[in-house]
């Protein structure tokens, strides 16, 4: 049962990611990306990570992609010849090397790296994945978390400064 669900989710994820970059109508791309987010969330659910799954939908589908769609609607992009422009050799180079790495990794016995202590049973013993993520995030990784929030704060202040033109000009004049 789990296997069937996994293969369904994985297949749809792959297909919709390919569609995201190949479909010509921009709104269709966004819809394909939305489908992909949902199926990735499904993969998280299969891994007993409900919190991650829901946060994936809230953050990516609920906030970021809506903004994409918003901008797309305002720009009213035509399905012009955006494909196969001059940079395609670079794309082939980069993607080809990534593909070669993946194939090599699979050939070398998959990603059989070291598995950490966070097995499904261990997470359940912590009281669920929400608690597990919270404990890890606010103890072991507190500093990176704070740094990330600081970066976001800087970005927010930067956005405000960029949109408020008068703010900067006044200071220059003073």
């Amino acid at each position: 049962m789990m296997q069937v669900l996994f293969y369904y989710m994985a297949a749809v994820t792959v297909v919709s990611s390919v569609l995201t970059v190949t479909l010509k109508q921009p709104v269709y791309n966004v819809l394909a990306l939305l489908t992909m987010f949902f199926h990735v969330a499904g993969l998280y659910v299969l891994l007993n990570a409900e919190f991650l799954a829901v946060v994936q939908i809230i953050v990516y589908a609920g906030a970021i992609l809506v903004l994409y769609l918003f901008v797309l609607m305002l720009l009213n992009l035509r399905s012009d010849a955006r494909h196969m422009h001059r940079q395609w050799p670079f794309a082939v180079l980069i993607l080809g090397s990534v593909a070669a790495m993946l194939v090599g990794a699979f050939a070398g016995g998959g990603f059989g790296g070291e598995i950490g202590q966070y097995s499904t049973a261990y997470i359940d013993s912590l009281g669920g994945d929400t608690q597990a993520i919270g404990l890890t995030l606010y103890t072991d990784y507190l500093l990176p978390f704070e740094v990330a929030s600081l970066v976001l704060l800087v970005a927010m202040v930067g956005a405000i400064v960029l949109t408020k033109k008068g703010l900067v000009d006044d200071q220059v004049e003073d």
Binding site: V27, E50, V54, I57, I58, G62, L69, M73, G128
Partner: peptide, 26 residues
Amino acid sequence: DLNVGLLYILAFASVGTYGVILAGWS
């Protein structure tokens, strides 16, 4: 009885926006 029930509701409430935006666009 989902252990992230509240977030689940919020997540799907935000997905409902797509219907409205796409309806407006299409």
